[in-house]
């Protein structure tokens, strides 16, 4: 491991804490994600992974601690401001626009990024740079053949791909993937995993996952959350060999390996 300089950190949390009433869902979590890395965040069910993501993206506000994006403190920034500063996410449970088509969904994200999303005088589809980029991204994400169908009618695996496409349309520097393959039937799974593998190298990816097979094949660094706190952190090999991590998972679920 080389010593990381300040500017090579894409995303950092310092003492991030979240209380729900008397329950502490996240406790003093400090992690640093290097630019361009594939950083996995794992932990058993109820470890506070989703709370952590919601703190990162600003859906929840932190009780204490801070979030730094590219060195800039964004702890008080709104979710949409964080998107504009380069952080995008997918959701563990699909959060899509059921009544829109994938083409509209991605075109929406692209025009928002280009700052033309509030134009009320233009007809949709008349900006070729928006449509072309949306169509190109959807084709690359293997959604080319369904881009004009209603999202609610798409197979689940396709909807998971659209989750990723919508986030990528924001051209993020940091992409948070919240269990990208969750709930996907076995025969559609490979498509999701291929797309996760094929993510642009310059994008820093934070993968929230408890599927160990996916984590070990994809990540270069792993943070383990247990009961809301950072349990340990290390390279894939270090975590794989750590007997304490196995103990945490045993009894929780069978480790896919």
């Amino acid at each position: 491991m080389t010593v990381a300089s300040e500017s090579s950190i894409a995303l950092e949390t310092r003492g991030l804490t979240k209380d729900f009433g008397g329950f502490r869902a996240n406790s003093d979590v400090s992690i640093a994600v290097r630019r361009g890395s594939r950083h996995a965040l794992i932990g058993p069910n109820g470890a506070g992974k989703t709370t952590f993501v919601n703190l990162l993206t600003g859906v929840l506000s932190a009780t204490a601690g801070s979030v730094l994006l590219g060195g800039e403190d964004v702890t008080r920034a709104s979710p949409q401001a964080r998107v504009r500063k380069g952080m995008a996410r997918t959701f563990q449970i699909n959060q899509l626009f059921a009544d829109l088509t994938p083409l509209e969904t991605v075109a929406l994200a692209v025009s928002e990024r280009l700052g033309t999303g509030a134009q009320w005088w233009r007809r949709l589809g008349t900006r070729s740079e928006v449509v072309d980029e949306a169509a190109e991204l959807l084709t690359r994400m293997r959604l080319g053949d369904v881009m004009t169908r209603r999202t609610a009618q798409l197979p689940y695996g396709k909807q998971r791909l659209l989750e990723m496409a919508a986030a990528l349309a924001c051209r993020p520097q940091v992409l948070l993937l919240d269990e990208p393959a969750a709930g996907v039937p076995e025969d559609e799974r490979h498509e999701i995993l291929d797309m996760v593998e094929a993510l642009p190298a310059e994008v820093t990816v934070v993968l929230i996952e408890h599927d160990m097979e996916l984590v070990f094949s994809f990540a270069d660094r792993i943070s383990v959350l247990v009961q809301g706190a950072l349990f340990t952190e290390g390279t894939v090999d270090e975590i794989a060999r750590d007997p304490r991590v196995r103990t945490v998972y045993l009894g929780e679920e069978v480790v896919h390996a």
């Binding site: 995008a88 959060q95 899509l96 626009f97 059921a98 009544d99 829109l100 025009s111 924001c170």
Partner: peptide, 17 residues
């Protein structure tokens, strides 16, 4: 289009900026 998106899913609309 952004209004329809907001109506459909405000959480996702926010997460697209």
């Amino acid at each position: 289009l952004s209004l329809r998106a907001l109506k459909d899913n405000r959480l996702r609309a926010g997460s697209l900026g």
